[in-house]
Design a protein around this nucleic acid. Sequence first.
RNA 1: GACCCUUUCAUCUAGUGGCCAAGGAUGCUGCGUUUUCAUCGCAGUCACAGAGGUUCAAAUCCUCUAAGGGUCGCCA
Length: 485
Amino acid sequence: MIHHLLTPSLLQSLSLIHIFKGLIMTVARFAPSPTGYLHIGGLRTALFSWLWAKKMGGKFLLRIEDTDMARNSQEALVAIIEAFEWVGMDYDGEVIYQSQRFDIYNQYIVRLLEESKAYKCYMSKEELDALRESQMKAGERPRYDGKYRDFDGTPPLGVEPVIRIKAPQEGRIIFRDGVKGEIDIAADEVDDFVIARADGSPTYNFVVAIDDALMGVTDVIRGDDHLYNTPKQIVVYNALGFALPNFYHVAMINNEQGKKLSKRDGATDVMEYQKLGYLPEALLNFLVRLGWSYGDQEIFSVEELQTIFEPKSLSKSSSNYNLDKLLWLNAHYIKNKTNAELAQLLHPFGIDIREHDERELLLDATKERGKTLVELAEQIMMILKAPESYDEKAVKKGFKADSKETLLDFITMLEGWDKALHLPCDYHNVLEHFVATKEIGFGKIGQPLRIALLGSMTGSSLDEIMAIIGTKETADRVKRAIALL
RNA sequence: GACCCUUUCAUCUAGUGGCCAAGGAUGCUGCGUUUUCAUCGCAGUCACAGAGGUUCAAAUCCUCUAAGGGUCGCCA
């Protein structure tokens, strides 16, 4: 009987998974350190986290890792928000600044000290350096030797102590990484690391663990340069009795030569892509496919990604930045924009054709010829403005001795045309009629005309160009070319 | 130096023991469409890092080697 009552939809709404999801919401986060701009690699990690949170119906939080007070975190935040806005990403709740949470961290330091899970270490920097050096020489991994771990004597004078946490001295630290699989490290590889500096300020690996736990972060997606920090953070989680989140360590992006991406490789700041004429949807599509895949699919809208993204299909190995593919994607997204959208997007690139009479024609004639908005703007300018110079090679090849006469004959026919000339097909008729009556090949008029109108051998179709600029401007440009060439 | 991670076409990747003499995409080359260029369509080019094992069967599992990367801070 019960079977009949439990319809699939009823089952779904009653299912354990549903209830479970309601209890434990996915909380992802992006936690950049304030560098002043958002790095392209950072955007990708943020994107992965954001998509995952969206897909799970969870939250995506933003936290600024500014325990190092020297850098201006406010300025950095503005840059990050600007980039987020440009690509259409958002975050939930208030931005958290670690610099404003020192009292919280201090409470935990006091607690660990009281529980003797942490201790004061009086080792001087010189002593520490010497220790490391001798360990290196002995072929060991350099690490603090635990000298003050169980110290109860008289502390040396003149040394402000740091606070170190007691890391396990034997056994293994094992955790499951959602990308790399099981990570297994000997516990003694992790030394008693510093959780508070001599001036009392807390350190990175300590505050990250605390904040992630306090913010309820369930899924930590970050670059795999943090892989080795994870066991340290696990030590903190364990000492404080916090539940571990899921970790996903994403492999890095290298440059086209396979080396670490640096400023020398060109655009690393997300906002540079805007200036270079890339569309945010192209950038995101490009980045998401760098280290992540979904079968054979290449083109993804953000909306679709929000329903299909899974960090488990993240790649384990690093990937190379590939400009050709970005360009291809950008061209794809430009082609698929409406002309009204393009006119709007072009405005910051010095082209205002939002109210232009021939806006539709102009963009139809050019949008397949620009891989970036910058290139598209150039294409449009070529049509809108009479050429200031004529490409030498083109003239040599396409502007022959008899070209001037042919052109003159053509504009005579054009100006004497008895029907109205508006559409590309109207001009097409003139051109066809001209070629037919003169009994010449199309190249005889096509090439010189193109050079006269654009100054170049390549570009949009002549019909379209003439329809956009009109009969008078066509004639003017032809006359000018005849005079100059 | 120690520890950890990675390794499929030039590049991004599919691939979880037989469907793989390895698929898609970008790039490149050619052809077609186009009065040019571009777009588009079609075709071609190109890879399992190497060596051993396990198995009837290995890109897929194991071992070693090599190469690349990361980490070893009172930076994050």
